[in-house]
């Protein structure tokens, strides 16, 4: 963004005209940077990813009565997890921290990832907001969201008859 973009009375055609050559160079620079990064990465000089941040895997099951959203959260306790329902979107947020015992020693090998995470799960149908239950067991969070009567009524199985 050009500096003039920040001044309200200087915005408009002038800023627009100015911003396009800027963007061309910015795009070129980005392109060059990624080219160099790619080159070094191919030689193993740069790590492929800085260190993968923790993001839980999610599975959604549907039964006739409810939706069940499960998230794999190994190493977390129920206190580290926040579950919210906004509209028809279920939000699971929290942070996976390194345990204190682990920190005291020297890590000689690591594959597990840590950090704050947020996952939003759009629900396919209407749910009864007051009857949502969340349970945490063996590192897996399971949120049970009962369908509303209308949502249940919307589904109808049609019997196929033979002639």
């Amino acid at each position: 963004m050009a500096f003039t973009d920040l001044i309200p009375w200087k915005r408009g055609t002038q800023a627009l005209a100015k911003s396009s050559p800027d963007n061309v160079f910015a795009a070129l620079q980005r392109e060059m940077n990624s080219l160099f990064d790619e080159f070094w990465r191919s030689w193993g000089a740069l790590p492929a990813t800085p260190r993968a941040a923790f993001s839980p895997s999610i599975t959604v099951d549907e039964s006739a009565k409810d939706y069940r959203v499960s998230a794999e959260l190994p190493g977390l306790s129920e206190k580290d997890i926040k579950v919210e329902l906004t509209g028809n979107t279920l939000m699971i947020t929290g942070e996976k921290k390194e345990e204190r015992e682990e920190k005291r020693g020297t890590t000689v090998y690591t594959e597990r990832s840590y950090g704050a995470f947020a996952r939003a799960v759009p629900l396919p149908g209407a749910v009864d907001r007051n009857k949502v239950k969340a349970q945490f067991k063996h590192g897996v969070l399971t949120v049970t969201l009962p369908k509303t009567a209308e949502a249940k009524a919307a589904h109808k199985q049609i019997t196929v008859k033979a002639e």
Binding site: S57, I58, T59, D61, E62, S63, P124
Partner: peptide, 11 residues
């Protein structure tokens, strides 16, 4: 669970 169908799976 036997009574439910998986509609989205990452694990």
């Amino acid at each position: 669970a036997a009574d439910a169908d998986t509609i989205y799976a990452e694990f």
